[in-house]
Amino acid sequence: MGGPIGVGFLGCGPVTQAIHLPTLATMPERFRVARVMDVNRDVAGAVAARCGAAPSVAENEVYDDPVVEIVVVCSPNAAHAEQVIASCRAGKRVVLCEKPLAVSRAEGDEIARVALETNTPIIVGTMHAYDPAYRAAYAAWEELEESASFVLSSIYLPANGVFINQATDEVELAAAAPAQGAGDHSDPAFQAMMIRNAMLGLAIHNVPLIRELYSSVGQMLSARFLRPFGYALAMRHEEQVASLQALMPGVWPPHWNLRAIGRKNELNIAFPPSYVLAGSSRSELIAEGETRVFEGPRNGYEAMWTHVGEVAAGAAEPRISLDVIVSDLGFAFDLADGAEEILMAKP
C-alpha cells in the first residue's frame, strides 16, 4: 500500500476549516492535504499554511494537480455541480461533495451522467448517514424487518459559530456573512424560498436517513416557515407519516434527533452537533420492551472519511449509490416544492 492519498479542497470556509481539516488531522497515515483553493487569496494562503498544502485561487490548479486524487467540494452551493463535474472529468479517484450535491434537479442528473461516464465515485458529505452508532442501530432495525409508521426529524441548533469556534480557530475574515432570514417574513414567496434554503442546507443532513425509513415525500400535509430560520413540515405517504422540524439559531443546547415508531419497535437517535468530533450519535433501539443502546467514540465525519479512503483505494464501492444520492437530492426538492405549494396556496 502506498502513502497517504492526496486531497484537494475547493473552498476553504468554515466547513473545510472546522470539519474536514480537523478530521483529516486524525488520519495522517491515510490522507495528505495537498492543495487548498479559495477565491480569497488570504484565506487560501492561511489555510494552506495550517495543513502544509499548496494554496490556489484557481479551481483548475486543483483539477490539474496530479497529487490531488480526492477532491472535496466545499464551495458555495451554486458552484457544487460544476465543480463536481469538472473533478470527474479531471479523472480524480473520488469526489466528496458537501451537501447539497446541487441546487437543481437538472444539475443532479447531469452529475450522475458525468459520474457514470467517467466512472467516478461521488460521495455526499451527509455525515450522519455514516455515523457508526446509527448504522448499527439501523442494521438491527432492518433485521427485525420493521417499517416505520411515524418518523420525526427534529433539529434545534444554536448558531454554527458556537461549534465552529470549539472545533478550530477559524481564519478571520473582514467581511461578515449575510444574516439569515432578512426579508419580508409575511410574504409566502419569501417563506417558500427560506424553506427551500433550509431543505438544501439543513434538512438535507438527514435526508438519507429519513429515506431509509420513509422513502417518498408523498402528500405534503402542512408547511410552516419558522423565524428566524426553521420549518415544520408534515407529510404522509401511504400508511406512513413524517414530521420534519427545525429551528435555529437558539441559545440553548443542541438537539438533533431522529425518531421512528414501527409496529413493534422504536428507534431514537440523538446526534451530536455539526463541526465537532464529539463521538457518535446515541442510538437506541427499543425492541420487545428492551432498549439497546449504540454509542461509540467515532463520529460520522471520521467514519465518512474512512469510507472515502476505502473507496479511493478501490477497496469499497460507495455505501450510498449514485442513484440514491440523486434521488436523495430529489427528495429534498420534493420537500421544498411541496412546502411551496402549500405556502403559496394560502389566502
Partner: peptide
C-alpha cells in the same frame, strides 16, 4: 404539531418539545 401513534412497546407516554430562539 400533534401526533399520536401506538407505542410499539405498550408504553403510554407524552413527549413535548417547545422551541423559541431563547428557550
Amino acid at each position: 404539531t400533534l401526533t399520536s401513534f401506538p407505542s410499539p412497546v405498550g408504553a403510554a407516554k407524552l413527549s413535548l418539545a417547545a422551541v423559541s430562539p431563547t428557550h
